[in-house]
């Protein structure tokens, strides 16, 4: 059977089940509107270790363990672990997973990591190369600030377009299971809209999100009607407005179906998070704790999950490069019986 479908899309021969998903977050996320839904809310943002980077690795470790336990899969039974984060050379993922002794694929897709991981994991399983894959994504507000902006104690004002990096980690276990399953994916192209403002990442990523969603509709001959919800990663309020406008220009009205994890995770009025949440953990933990649960309860049946990433580094920004965006769409549907 031909699984490739159009320029960017793959539709699997068999659904790839989501066996479980786990979310571990920091205190601020715990105080947000989804606070009670996360698997664990850490009270100490440094998690009892001595640096922000090590704390992020602790989050990865905890998310991996929690996801495996929820899926009732022993760590040794994963054929692949796929993980991504924002730190230089994947510091968060590597030092959180170095003791797993499982085949490891480190990925970088900025905040789209969980979408990239689930796409690759789904293809590995549908291709018959693996039966169980663990996908992870993590970010930490403090390690991200330290790397991309200023030391935390340095006083500065955040512009209203800026977003707040989510502290947390998410783990998604792919394998054989009934219920919400990955049906395919549309891998995004890098889209550079010429945005240079590192404090407006929603604007930098909205073009990529629009491009991927439109490509998915085209490749799969679908419209927004096919889905109950179209969920982007961390466009925030600014990026959402731009995405809806761009989609309208492409002839798709997705306004009533669109949700954004960055908008869901914080309360902009009380949490001072400006345009919304961001970071690799943002889409991961909101998907795991909120949207996946809504699918399991039967409230929603089909979603297009589109984690978004701003592909920049501190060096590229300082050298005046614009910020390319990327978005990976993952098709998730409720399947009544187990795959095969």
């Amino acid at each position: 059977m031909q699984k490739r479908c159009g320029a960017q899309t793959v539709l699997f021969a068999n659904p790839v089940g989501i066996m479980a998903a786990a979310s571990i977050v920091g205190p601020k996320e715990g105080e947000g509107p989804l606070g009670a839904k996360f698997d664990r809310v850490e009270k100490d943002p440094m998690l009892g270790v001595e640096s922000w980077e090590k704390a992020e690795s602790e989050l990865v470790k905890a998310a991996a363990k929690a996801a495996a336990e929820k899926a009732r899969v022993a760590m040794d039974d994963f054929d692949y672990i796929i993980a991504g984060d924002l730190m230089n050379q994947s510091t968060g993922s590597i030092f959180g997973l170095r003791e797993t002794m499982r085949p490891y694929l480190g990925i970088f897709g900025a905040c789209s990591a969980i979408g990239e991981g689930m796409s690759i994991g789904g293809m590995l399983i549908d291709g018959g190369f693996a039966s169980k894959v663990l996908c992870l994504a993590s970010s930490h507000f403090c390690s991200a600030e330290k790397q991309f902006r200023f030391p935390l104690e340095f006083g500065s004002q955040r512009p209203p377009t800026s977003s707040w990096t989510v502290t947390g980690a998410a783990g998604v276990v792919l394998g054989a299971a009934a219920g919400p399953s990955v049906m395919g994916c549309t891998t995004g192209k890098m889209i550079d809209m010429g945005v240079k403002d590192a404090h407006n990442m929603g604007a930098a990523m909205a073009g990529a999100a629009a491009d991927t969603i439109a490509a998915h509709f085209e490749d799969a001959s679908r419209t927004a009607d096919y889905y109950d919800l179209i969920i982007t990663g961390d466009l925030g309020y600014v990026g959402q407005e731009l995405l809806l406008e761009l989609m309208k220009k492409k002839g798709h009205d997705i306004a009533h179906k669109h949700r954004d994890c960055g908008i869901e995770i914080f309360d902009r009025n009380t949490q001072d998070t400006h345009s919304g949440g961001s970071g690799c953990a943002c889409s991961g933990v909101v998907f795991a704790a909120f949207f996946l649960e809504r699918m399991k309860s039967g409230e929603i049946g089909r979603i297009l999950f589109v984690p978004t990433g701003a592909l920049m580094s501190p060096v590229s920004v300082q050298q005046g490069e614009s910020i390319p965006g990327i978005a990976h769409a993952v098709v998730i549907e409720n399947v009544r019986t187990c795959g095969q």
Binding site: P159, P160, T161, G194, V195, N200, A203, G207, V238, L242
Partner: peptide, 13 residues
């Protein structure tokens, strides 16, 4: 053109 759109969508300080 996109820059104009971004300007419109982005709240000012």
């Amino acid at each position: 053109e996109y820059g104009e759109m971004v300007k419109k969508a982005s709240p000012n300080s």
